[in-house]
Design a protein around this nucleic acid. Structure first.
Lengths: 216, 216
DNA sequence: AATTGATTAAAACAACTGTTTAAAACTAGT
DNA sequence: ACTAGTTTTAAACAGTTGTTTTAATCAATT
């Protein structure tokens, strides 16, 4: 009974492992902790996955797939404005990055892998991050003047992505910096609106592109 | 001889430890590795610092002090424009955050502590990050219209800091994403100029503050 | 009921972890 | 030269790590 269901022992182990890896990192998570959380014997990890390392990459890959399936970019028709596309991109990106209160471990594990990249990171970039980055570049290509060079386009993309990622990577600091009320006010919708607005306003000034170079 | 010099065994251990902690993190760094790198006996860590944990926080504190001494905000006169202050702030912030090629371990260790915060993080926020954040808020207070509320001010500060921090936290991804030539083009001066320009342009549009909320 | 194969369980493995011990080596001050 | 204090060393400690081994248990087929 139930060979595909998520209640097989193998599944339970990846799930428990993913959660613990996301919480404590690879080194600090012991095989024994994982097996105890999955209600399995110590030998189960090696039986099913060979070793701890391969269990880890399986958890990362699964987390990534799960996250991509869940939160997707909306479908765009031919007459969707570039501004609208950017707003959608930013909102989706923040949703993917910022782990809400009732959230699963998937996002945190991927973000940890990006922060402390192992071998699985390079593959993650190729299969997922790069195409997303290309989408953003094409949107910016529509928004910025045609003569904008590739370097400027890239820097602008980084400025947008950086604003979004900040709320993940700096989260512990933000929590220390703000009081509870201020922190709670950082809802995903509000963040996305602000970043979209902040960035769009910047584009509308792209006439005189250099700014007197700040004294020096 | 030489009680204050940096060639005492104690100094060599903190130095070696900081480098290894910055490179591999706390868990993955062994006391034996540290002592071997410092050319000391295994017992040296416990003799001088009590235990591994206390050696770690000493390394973090020292790294932070070192970084703060090295790269400082310039002195501002009464007639320095807010725009100039912002440019200075961004350039200094990036210098503090982005570890150049011939760089020491100090920056990386602090960034790691922020990413995987231990007990030392809260103190770091209070003693250093918060005052820096206040400075940025006061600059933005000059640049933005008077009626701007505190929340908007905070979000704007996050947008700027986020753009800067991106080049640290996403560095491994960026390296994978760009080719060598493109990556090498990301010099600190250029990044700072772009971020300053991108942000300043955004401020000059602060007349109509809401932007039709992006359909939904 | 017996056989086959996959799964689980308990125990042991060797290697490594941070830390301690106790003796040696060194460095002054007298 | 002796001594008191600090520093360094080698060895051992107790605990944990990932992994293996070997046997027991289970589920289904014959």
């Amino acid at each position: 009974m139930s060979s595909n269901d998520l209640d097989t022992k193998r599944e339970r182990i990846v799930e428990a492992a993913g959660e613990l890896f996301a919480e404590r990192g690879f080194e600090a998570t012991t095989v024994r902790d994982i097996c105890q959380a999955a209600d399995a014997n110590v030998a189960a990890v090696n039986y099913y996955f060979g070793d701890k390392q391969r269990l880890y990459v399986e958890a990362v890959v699964r987390a990534h797939r799960w996250r991509m399936e869940r939160v997707k970019l909306p479908e765009w028709s031919v007459d969707t404005t570039a501004e609208q596309k950017l707003a959608d991109f930013i909102k989706t990106f923040i949703r993917r990055v910022r782990s809400g209160p009732g959230d699963t471990w998937h996002t945190r594990l991927i973000m940890r892998e990006i922060g402390n990249p192992s071998a699985a990171c390079a593959e993650l970039v190729q299969s997922s991050i790069r195409p997303q980055f290309e989408i953003l570049l094409s949107i910016l290509g529509e928004l910025l003047p045609d003569e904008t060079d590739a370097q400027k386009l890239r820097l602008t993309a980084f400025s947008i992505v950086g604003q979004c990622l900040f709320y993940h990577f700096a989260d512990p600091v933000i929590r220390n910096l703000l009081n509870d009320e201020e922190y709670a006010a950082l809802e995903i919708e509000k963040l996305a609106d602000h970043i979209t607005q902040f960035s769009m306003q910047s584009f509308k000034h792209r006439i005189r592109s250099d700014r007197a170079g700040a004294k020096r």
